[in-house]
Design a protein around this nucleic acid. Structure first.
Length: 442
DNA sequence: TCGTTCACGC
DNA sequence: GACGTACGTGAACGAA
């Protein structure tokens, strides 16, 4: 830890007390539910495993390894694929690779992996750390190189949310205290906003101030459609396979295959139902070659026309680091040591964005105690805060949390030159974390 | 015991 | 013109 001024020091000092209070308060867990699900998942897993070993490729598996046969072994899997199908896989056998072969055996393996992960890492991890109905995950401020936080025993920051089946199984274990409900407040695009405070790119600032839909626009550009033709899935693909990777320092040769595979994987179609392959063919993109060339041009426009100032900033920032051997965060920290290009560019943004959360978390905790509120903050996930809120305090809590994290913070840190926004999600009083529903607040 | 692979989050 | 995805934790496997 290397704070360079009093503000930086105080942020971590007070933040660690606030995190400690959340850890002590804990999150209420439905232990009965956990144990029921653990058993049920174990059964499903065992049945599926049996089914796999009784199949034809499963027989090959048993003939090769006998009682030492393990579905979880990548080496064994590769040997079985080679013997049974004559299929040679070099290197990784992860989800994307296995899915691409579209074989019943491999889909079954992926399903076992998923059930197993859900049971062991999540439900078992939660159950074994729960004491008298409350879970107390650790929130650390001293482990991440980026000045972000981390969480462990269990890691509260990687609870499944994207896969609806798994999200449902795991998140239904998290419940509110009696007479309370769970409320999650998330910063919207905070890393993009904080980045803009560093590079001050005028076009990016205009986008952020007008609520412009960048993911939708890039969906249209990547797949050569009109903005009005962009479907929800296309936007999702553009966000996770173009915009974010590009911001993290990826480039077209990596990004283009992912965008291309998304067409199959997510069965992408236009708003009116036209298949994307058909559409692309009409626009002169007949194969992956063409598509790769197209994405290269999209990328060029993105960095050299749209966000030219951002691009300049990256080079200047890197050059300054290479000259001096360090760089400073706007939140009062100095980063030193040997770093690669992408690290130098990403750390200040990730770190400062997390510090916005940390400051808000700390102030909110302080104010809630001052007001003797019965609601408690129970956790944090990089850019969001989870609280267990007393029903009588619901409106007060939302108003206070929103005010602190969007308004008060800008009085404390004048370097935040852009508006910050939050989304509010609330679970019903008798609901679980899985049942949270969005409620837009600015 | 430790490095690698896999999978989950932001 | 070449280069090039950030950060975390945990479980299982398998070699040492």
């Amino acid at each position: 830890m290397n704070p360079i001024n009093r503000k930086g020091y105080r942020l971590l000092h007070e933040g660690s007390f606030a995190f400690g209070r959340a850890e002590r308060a804990g999150i209420r867990i439905d232990e009965q539910y956990c144990h029921k699900q653990l058993k049920s998942l174990e059964n499903k897993e065992r049945k599926l495993e049996k089914k796999i070993f009784n199949s034809k490729p499963g027989a090959t598996w048993r003939s090769l390894y006998g009682s030492r046969a393990k579905l979880g072994s990548p080496d064994q899997l590769k040997a079985v694929l080679k013997k049974h199908y004559g299929l040679r896989i070099e290197g990784s056998v992860d989800k994307t690779v296995l899915a691409s072969y579209n074989l019943p055996l491999l889909w079954a393996i992926l399903r076992v992996r998923k059930l197993h992960k859900t049971r062991t890492t999540y439900l078992r991890g939660i159950a074994s750390e729960t004491l008298d109905g409350y879970l107390h995950p650790f929130f650390n401020l001293h482990t991440a190189r980026t000045y972000r936080s981390s969480s462990s025993r269990p890691n509260f920051q990687n609870i499944p949310v994207r896969d609806p089946e798994v999200a449902k199984i795991v998140r239904r274990a998290f419940i509110a205290r009696n007479g309370h409900c769970l409320v999650e407040i998330d910063y919207g695009a905070v890393e993009v906003r904080v980045a803009a405070c560093y590079h001050e790119d005028p076009r990016m600032i205009r986008y952020l101030k007008t609520g412009f839909d960048m993911h939708g626009e890039m969906g249209a550009e990547c797949y050569r459609t009109k903005k009005s033709q962009v479907s929800k899935d296309m936007r999702y693909a553009a966000k996770n396979r173009f915009v974010f990777p590009e911001f993290y320092g990826s480039y077209h040769k990596q990004v283009a295959p992912d965008l291309w595979n998304a067409i199959q994987e997510l069965k992408l179609s236009l708003n009116d139902g036209t298949s994307l392959h058909t559409h692309l063919r009409k626009r002169g993109i007949k194969n992956f070659e063409d598509f790769g060339d197209h994405i290269e041009r999209v990328e060029d426009r993105f960095w050299y026309e749209k966000f030219a100032r951002y691009t300049e900033w990256k080079e200047e920032w890197l050059a300054a680091y290479r000259k001096t051997g360090y760089f400073d965060l706007k939140t009062g920290f100095r980063c030193r040591g040997w770093m690669r290009r992408n690290e130098v560019i990403n750390y200040p943004i990730q770190g400062s964005a997390f510090h916005c959360l940390l400051w808000s978390f700390t102030r909110l905790d302080e104010e809630m105690r001052k007001r003797k509120m019965r609601s408690v903050i129970v956790g944090q996930i990089h850019d969001s805060i989870l609280a267990d809120v007393h029903l009588n305090e619901l409106e007060d809590y939302i108003e206070l949390a929103t005010y602190i994290s969007t308004k008060a913070i800008r009085k404390h840190w004048e370097w935040i030159t852009l508006p910050l926004i939050v989304d509010v999600e609330i679970a019903p009083p008798d609901g679980t974390w899985y049942d949270k529903k969005e409620r837009k607040v600015v």
